[in-house]
Amino acid sequence: MEAQAPNQIAKAFWQCTPGMIALIGVLISLIPFGLVSHWLVFPALALTTVYFWAINQPSLLPPAVIFMIGLAQDFFSGGPVGLWAFVYLVAYASVLSQRNILYSQPFAVLWGGFLVLSLVVGVLIWLVGSFYYSQVLNVGPIALQVLSTSLVYPIMSKIYSQVQTNISIAS
């Protein structure tokens, strides 16, 4: 019984990890790296979290957690409230609908799937943003964010795989 307690704590810790990583990703995007006047746009790290866990273990990243992460990003960044929550949840729903196809595919296919998802999210952000601000938004920064997010996916995927392994061990 006593030996099980640390295991329970370890299990609970690892089960919270996907949501925590997404939240840390949102906080990292706020660090003043000086990208604000460069052509670089910080990747939407939480989107990589949503994609990976929606395919591999959706129970560890329930919709309520995604909603909170999206809202946190909206409030922290000072942008339209509900935008990122809406975008992440739509992305989550889209991936869940294709989960049977994507599950156990080789990494190259998964990366390709993520690129498609990033493009869809980019278009969605552009549409919703243009509607919100009542003007046609500049496509450049959105396209760059799609690119940067797609490029960091392999690195983030490695981290998530390691977390998934640790969760399996703890379970």
Binding site: F75, G82, A85
Partner: peptide
């Protein structure tokens, strides 16, 4: 159902923010 509900809530928040830019001022 929860997922669909939360997507709906997010969309409603967006509409509220668009209609009244000061709606979330205190929360911000």
């Amino acid at each position: 159902t929860l997922l669909a509900f939360l997507i709906f809530v997010s969309a409603v928040l967006l509409f509220i923010g668009r209609a009244d830019p000061t709606a979330f001022e205190k929360s911000r």
